[in-house]
Computed example of a mutant assay.
Amino acid sequence: MRFAALIAAERLLPAFVALLAIAGCIGEDRAKAASPAANTEAIPLGTGFDFYVLSLSWSPSWCKAYDPQGKTDQCEAGGRRRGLVVHGLWPQYESGYPENCPSQAPRRVPEALGRQYLDLIPSMGLIGHQWRKHGTCSGLGQADYFAVTRIARERLAIPPDLLSTGQSRDLSVSSIEMAFVEINPGMTPQMIAVTCEGRLLDEIRICFDKELNFRICPQVDSRACRRSAVDLPRAQ
């Protein structure tokens, strides 16, 4: 009986080994799918500048100051729950920045292209303005410039305190910076600047290199808000 059992086990062993190999391959494939490196998109590389600033605007501050009646696309009733929205992706020099550069690309952004990015930049007018002022200085065509803008935004995690727009609150500038640093590996306080208009939170500016890795930007950081705390108005 023992001999028969051993023979049966030997016959089953190759099948068992094959099953282990298949399971290992499946596990490896799943690990690759979950790995950020495996899902990294090819990033069109810009030219003619040193680095990018991704500028995120606190939408309730802008609407409170410039459109309290909710007449614009950004502030109308359907968009009032917006918090941080993309203001733009700005090519920068180590000192200063280019703007309104000559470009062979059209000045106008076609609606078919712009509407793909309304979830990030909530108005066609702002999309067109950002292309003309900043995108033309990126060395990229329109489609690539806005594709890089999306990739930059998707690489940035937003702290939970800045996802809620239901109530007004005060936050210290240092706590906002540290909240970003804590949930974005590789970021340091020298790579982020919080700006304000009076007491209101205006923008959060994040510095990226051309391959969209976080990088230091002393001049951008030096222009940060000098207040110790800022007010985040609620969405109206």
Rank of each mutant, 00 (worst) to 15 (best):
R153G: 01
P159K: 03
I151N: 04
Q130D: 13
A112Y: 08
C137P: 13
L140K: 02
C137A: 12
L140V: 07
E111Y: 10
R107S: 15
G141I: 09
Q130V: 13
I151D: 01
M124W: 09
H129A: 11
L126D: 08
S123G: 13
L140W: 04
H134M: 04
W131A: 04
P160H: 02
F146P: 03
F146H: 00
R107E: 14
M124D: 09
D119T: 10
A143K: 15
K133A: 13
H134V: 02
R108E: 15
E154T: 12
G114L: 09
A152M: 08
Y145C: 00
A152L: 08
V148W: 06
R153S: 10
F146I: 01
I151L: 14
L156M: 10
G114F: 07
S123L: 05
I151S: 04
G114V: 08
R155V: 05
H129L: 13
T136V: 09
R107A: 15
Q130G: 07
I158F: 03
L156V: 14
H129I: 08
G141H: 11
P122E: 11
I158S: 03
A112M: 06
M124V: 06
T149H: 04
G139A: 04
T136D: 07
P122A: 11
S138P: 10
S138K: 05
G135S: 02
M124R: 13
R115G: 00
P122M: 09
S123E: 06
L156K: 06
L120A: 10
P110V: 05
T136E: 06
L113G: 05
Q116E: 15
P110H: 03
L118A: 01
D144C: 03
G135A: 03
G141R: 12
R155Q: 09
D144S: 14
M124T: 07
R108I: 15
I151A: 08
V148C: 06
I121M: 11
A143V: 15
G125L: 13
V148H: 02
A147W: 11
D161K: 12
A152H: 07
Q116M: 14
A157E: 13
H134W: 07
L113H: 07
R150D: 00
S138F: 04
P110S: 13
T149Q: 05
G128C: 08
L126K: 07
A143S: 15
L126F: 06
D144M: 04
V148G: 03
P122W: 06
S123M: 03
P122L: 09
W131F: 03
G128S: 14
